[in-house]
Structure formats: C-alpha cells, structure tokens
Amino acid sequence: MMTDREKALDDDLAAARSEVAGEGWEMSDALMARILADAAAEMPRPSADAGRRGLWSALVSTLGGWPAVSGLAAATVAGIWLGAAPPPALDTFLAGDPVSISFTTGLDVLEADG
C-alpha cells in the first residue's frame, strides 16, 4: 500500500525527471567545446616522444649514420687528447693544427642541423 506521502514523493521524482527531459537541456556547443579543450589538454602525447627521437635520428642521419657518429666521437676524443697531451713527435710530423680542423668539422655539421 502506498501512502499519500509516498505518492507525493513519486510525483516529485517524476517531476524532477521530466523537468530535465524538456527543452533547455540539450548538449550545447559551448559545453562540447569545454570538454574537448580538456581532452586536447590531457591528450597523451606519444607524438612528443617521437618528435624527440625524430630530432636525434635526423641528426644522426645528417652525420652519416651511427658508424659515422661514433667515428666522429672517436676523432673528437682523439683530438681532445692530442690537444691536451701532444706527443713530442707530432709537431714535426704534422705541420699546422689538425686538432682545430677536427673540432671545426664536427661543430659545423651540428650547427647546420640545429
């Protein structure tokens, strides 16, 4: 048995339901825009990581692949070593300044890419 008060509650609940089923409760463009702005801001960004990897691989391929890069690194290290501790015979064996040539070549390539 439903009491009058239970009946009144059911009427109120029905009124609350139909209130929102009526006009003025459609999805608006403004709400869609707010929600999508959040979606864009929260978007997971695999593309950002790919971008960072992309920069490295572009740099590496510009220099002629990884073997060339390790060659360049070895040459640079050797150049630094030669600059820091030139063997006594080097001055007579090589006229000029091979150390600075090695550095300049590497830096030019890096700067041209960046």
């Binding site: 929102v20 089923a21 409760w25 459609e26 999805m27 709400l31 869609m32 929600i35 999508l36 979606a39 864009a40 978007m43 997971p44 960004r45 695999p46 593309s47």
Partner: peptide, 21 residues
C-alpha cells in the same frame, strides 16, 4: 589515448548528453 582528438569528440557526443541529463 593513441592521439586521435576526433575520437574524443565522438565519445563526448555519445556519452555527455546522458551525463548532462
């Protein structure tokens, strides 16, 4: 999640009206 924002628009159109109600 894989980076397709148009999927978010479709999903919002599917789910948000009922959530709003």
């Amino acid at each position: 999640a894989a980076g397709d924002l148009s999927a978010a628009r479709l999903l919002t159109a599917r789910l948000a009206p009922r959530a709003l109600a």
